[in-house]
């Protein structure tokens, strides 16, 4: 047991403080924008009640919008840039297990942040969503798991940070811009990332959350397979 904790502690150190702070920066930046918008509205004579309603809506989006994006970018970067990859491939403990464990530690950190954000929003009385703990944690957990697994898989598949980040960006922005369209069809509405924020009353909310976690499992299996391609990991295979 002590060995497992020691290994997890090292994985946390290897992820590094800067990578761990990326989701925190994203959350802080988002909150700062909400405060800025509220301040601007109040100085422009917008009614106080209206300002509050807008801010609450913005804040409720925070865990579902920001954690998946920040987590996926960090997952992609970590998967691509392991300076000790070649050495890992010669060790008796398989590299794929180490890489997945590292993703697990990152996900655990995102979970800590996710729970904390939801609870803080709830503490201020802004969490007006129809679910209770622990179901309400699916608001951020399902899209975060799906996008983290997507970020890692894309990094392994493309071996290119710019390309994988661009695709992640397209998926994220695409889901925001074309959310209404995506919700019209069965094929896409179950993988719509921001359902809790945009249509919290949707009858298929739980199905959507479970489907997103299913996507994460499939992508994790893909990541596992890609981590077994040593030649590609070392850049000998196009």
């Amino acid at each position: 047991m002590a060995t497992i904790f020691t290994r997890l502690r090292y994985e946390l150190r290897i992820i590094g403080w800067l990578n761990l702070l990326v989701p925190v920066f994203a959350v802080v930046g988002f909150v700062a924008l909400v405060v800025l918008v509220a301040w601007d509205d109040l100085h422009n004579g917008v009614a106080n009640a209206s300002v509050n309603a807008d801010n609450i809506r913005y804040l409720r989006r925070l865990p579902e919008y920001m954690l998946p994006l920040a987590g996926s970018i960090v997952a992609s970067a970590l998967t691509l840039a392991d300076p000790v990859c070649e050495l890992h491939l010669t060790l008796p403990r398989a590299y794929r297990a180490t890489a997945v464990r590292r993703m697990g530690v990152l996900t655990l950190w995102l979970a800590v942040l996710g729970v904390a954000i939801v609870e803080v929003i709830r503490l201020f009385g802004f969490w007006h969503l129809p679910w209770v703990f622990p179901q309400d944690q699916l608001t951020w957990a399902a899209p975060t798991l799906a996008l983290v697994a997507l970020g890692a898989s894309l990094a392994l598949l493309l071996r290119n940070r710019a390309a994988s980040s661009a695709i992640l960006g397209v998926v994220w922005i695409g889901e925001i811009l074309f959310g209404g369209f995506l919700q019209q069809y069965d094929a896409t509405k179950y993988t719509y990332l921001f359902l809790s924020s945009e249509v919290p009353s949707a009858g298929y909310w739980l199905g959507n959350r479970l489907a997103l976690m299913g996507v994460a499992v499939v992508l994790l299996a893909m990541m596992w397979a890609l981590l077994g391609r040593n030649e590609a990991l070392l850049g000998n295979e196009s």
Partner: peptide, 9 residues
């Protein structure tokens, strides 16, 4: 390995 990377932290 030829290019031994390390974890700098």
């Amino acid at each position: 390995p030829q290019d031994l990377g390390v974890y700098p932290d």
